[in-house]
Amino acid sequence: MADRVLVAPDKFKGSLAATEVAARVAAGLSRAGFRGEVVQLPVADGGDGTVDAAVSAGYRRVELEVRGPTGRPVTAAFALLDETAVIEAAQASGLSLLEPGQLAPLTASTWGVGELILAAIRIGAKRIVLAVGGVATTDGGAGLLEALGARLADASG
């Protein structure tokens, strides 16, 4: 029977990405004398790190510039495998994209998430998996819808 360890961590928020946690645990096992197989499989909870987890599972990373939560350009990514795109809202509208102490829940937008969806569709995605954790907004997806071409109106039009 072969010795095998599965290392499947989520991020250590604020310090290490899930891929880094997995690599460091694997290195620690090796230093401690473990000689069996170490399988690294970073996971995510639907927030920061979801795209990285999909990439570690065989998806291809696609990067582009989109509007960040405050409207400034940011580099964001989604993961693509065949006709499925994994889109992490935090890539375009995440809390981590704001300056420390500069939360803007009432003005931050999900517009960039819509741009990620459009880009995925343009390169052939037919199925979108949208992970919505870790976002800086409370717009309910209004910016995302507007980026996709929707027009939002109040009761008076």
Rank of each mutant, 00 (worst) to 15 (best):
P105N: 04
L97H: 01
E83A: 11
E99F: 00
E88C: 03
V74M: 08
L103S: 07
E83R: 14
R67V: 09
S93G: 03
V86N: 13
A92K: 05
G71H: 05
L106D: 15
T75D: 08
R72S: 12
L106R: 14
A79I: 12
S109H: 14
A90K: 03
R67F: 03
T70G: 06
T84L: 12
G68E: 10
P69N: 05
G71Q: 02
F78R: 01
G112Y: 04
L97G: 05
W111Y: 14
L116G: 10
A77H: 07
E115P: 06
A79G: 08
T110G: 10
P100D: 10
A85C: 06
L81N: 12
Q91V: 12
L98Y: 00
G94C: 01
L106P: 02
A89G: 01
L81Q: 15
A108W: 02
R72C: 01
T110Y: 15
Q91A: 15
A79S: 15
T75Y: 07
S96D: 07
Q91W: 12
V86K: 07
L97N: 12
A85W: 05
G71T: 12
A104Q: 14
G112I: 15
P100L: 05
Q91K: 15
E88P: 01
V86F: 08
P100H: 06
A77W: 03
T70M: 06
V113E: 11
L81V: 08
A108T: 08
L98E: 00
E88W: 02
A92F: 03
A89H: 12
E99C: 00
G112V: 10
G112A: 10
Q91F: 07
T110L: 11
P105Q: 09
G101R: 08
P73C: 02
G112T: 10
L95A: 05
P73R: 00
L116K: 02
D82Q: 12
T75M: 06
R67P: 00
T70D: 10
Q102K: 05
L106V: 10
P69F: 07
G68P: 03
D82W: 08
L103E: 13
A77D: 05
P105F: 04
L103R: 09
Q91T: 13
S109I: 11
V74W: 09
L106S: 11
R72Q: 05
L95R: 09
A104G: 04
E88N: 03
D82V: 06
A92L: 14
Q102G: 09
A104S: 11
E99P: 03
P105Y: 08
F78Y: 15
A108H: 00
G114A: 13
V74D: 09
L97C: 06
